[in-house]
Design a protein around this nucleic acid. Structure first.
Lengths: 138, 138
DNA sequence: CGGTATCCTAGGCGATACTG
DNA sequence: CAGTATCGCCTAGGATACCG
């Protein structure tokens, strides 16, 4: 575990790095690289599917059961886009009844990095975030 | 700079950490903490405003000029939500003509952590991300 | 200068029903 | 089991015009 001082140092480091990056890359544009990547993963179910598949290969029905509230349509739809993104692979077994397995590609697995950072941030500001979410969206 | 081997180790670490977290926290829900925090920052202009303010205190007109494509309405609207989120402060100077300055709070600055992680990921998969973004949204 | 108010549209998302 | 097809809502976001 990092000490508090260490965490503070890291925080300022990232703050300064972002400032520098701003000067180098033109990212104050609606199609900046940050918005581009966000638009790929910031959908209602994308995260949840990625997270579920981090546990390993899963079938359609497993995902349907484990992801709370998702409909078959949205599951298929989101999986489709994840496949075209190259984040998920789809493997069909020619059996009766049919069996289809979904798994993460290397690209899909790589999303664990930003997601972990977001999770760490979310947890360290959890009270604030949850309060705001409730007030704003519920 | 980390070596390639070191980067690979870190990647697997995050992958495994996420797996473990899944077991502990119930995050396969549409109001999981990850989706909650994403819903706060994953809007079209939120990121850009946060990034712009990482450079320091700014006036309304400065933001309007620096953020490519944003309309006055969306700037005000997004700033408002950022203020209720406690990420941005608004300071009015009683002058003529009026002057208003926006700055990041500690909470706002803290978003540099997940944003930096997302930026690192975006850059290391830039070719892929940009290609997908173009195909999907343009 | 720094906002509001009003109207409008595209598309994300849901519900329901049907197929191989 | 693992999908498609259809319809329809709702709201984020844009255009435009008007205050203090």
């Amino acid at each position: 575990m990092d000490s508090i001082v260490e965490k503070q140092r890291k925080k300022n480091e990232n703050y300064l790095k972002l400032q520098q990056t701003l000067l180098v890359k033109s990212i104050l544009d609606e199609s900046c690289i940050l918005n581009q990547s966000l638009s790929l993963i910031a959908n209602k179910w994308t995260l949840l599917i990625l997270m579920a598949l981090m546990q390993g290969t899963k079938r359609n029905s497993e995902l349907l059961r484990q992801i709370n509230g998702i409909s078959p349509k949205m599951l298929t739809q989101t999986l489709k886009s994840l496949i075209t993104y190259g984040m998920v692979t789809r493997k069909v077994f020619p059996e009766v009844p049919p069996r289809v397995e979904y798994a993460l590609t290397e690209f899909g697995i790589s999303t664990a990095d930003p997601l972990m950072a977001l999770l760490n941030w979310s947890v360290s500001w959890e009270e604030q975030v949850t309060k705001l979410y409730k007030e704003t969206f519920l």
